[in-house]
Design a binder for these strands. Structure first.
Lengths: 112, 112
DNA sequence: CCTGATCCGTAGAGTCCCTACCTATGAAGT
DNA sequence: ACTTCATAGGTAGGGACTCTACGGATCAGG
């Protein structure tokens, strides 16, 4: 999987991952691996800055939860985050429709 | 449509557009608009450098065809370009499968 | 001759993700 | 006690790709 392909879709992935409940960063990465069937293996240098962006944008909120003396930052969706996720899902559908209109819109001799 | 979303998929779009036959740059842009239902409106500053990349990579070939005294550079797929297009289509399917596994892989109470 | 439409192309900037690296805690081995 | 591994969070810098804005050339119409 070309990593450039994720451009502009990362936010949607993170928001969707948090849709199931609050998670901390490391768990988000693992959840993405699981849900994508192993196709997505995002490095921390991708995920943490992205979560920051989302928090700055007000789409997620984070809290420090001290678990066993270890500090884990747990992220959850805000109301705006839920709305943004819905918008991202719609945008994804439109995006795939547009691309497939081109990819599949070539010469189809069998379909005529 | 966020333009960042196209990242990494532009090559596939161009190759697919040329799959129907040779076209010149301007016609490629118009074809993309038509096939995407108007969702894709790529500026020339995006398309021409991309075509160059594809030509450098050996996926497309171009020829100057003088039509009515006007020079138009016509692009067509090479053999490697056809192979690359097939690979891009496969990659696109894997990509959407991975993303949808996450976007749709949230809490589905109705599916259990 | 001059304007508008068509067509090709370049230069520079901006965004976004990745690689590489650093810090810290807790458990387990020696 | 000390080292190593696994877990967990984070930053710095770079590179690749696309977009905005602009420039040039040819033909049709007036």
């Amino acid at each position: 999987m070309k990593s450039d392909a994720l451009r502009g879709h990362l936010d949607a992935l993170l928001l969707a991952t948090l849709d199931g409940g609050q998670l901390h960063g490391y768990a988000i990465i693992e959840a993405l691996q699981k849900r994508s069937g192993g196709a997505l293996d995002l490095p921390t240098g991708t995920v943490y800055p992205a979560l920051r962006r989302l928090e700055t944008a007000g789409l997620v909120a984070s809290e420090w939860s001290t678990v066993g003396g270890r500090q884990r930052r747990t992220y959850r969706l805000t109301k705006a985050g839920h709305r943004a996720l819905a918008a991202e899902r719609t945008a994804w559908r439109e995006f795939t429709t547009a691309i497939e209109g081109v990819l599949g819109g070539g010469p189809w001799p069998a379909q005529a």
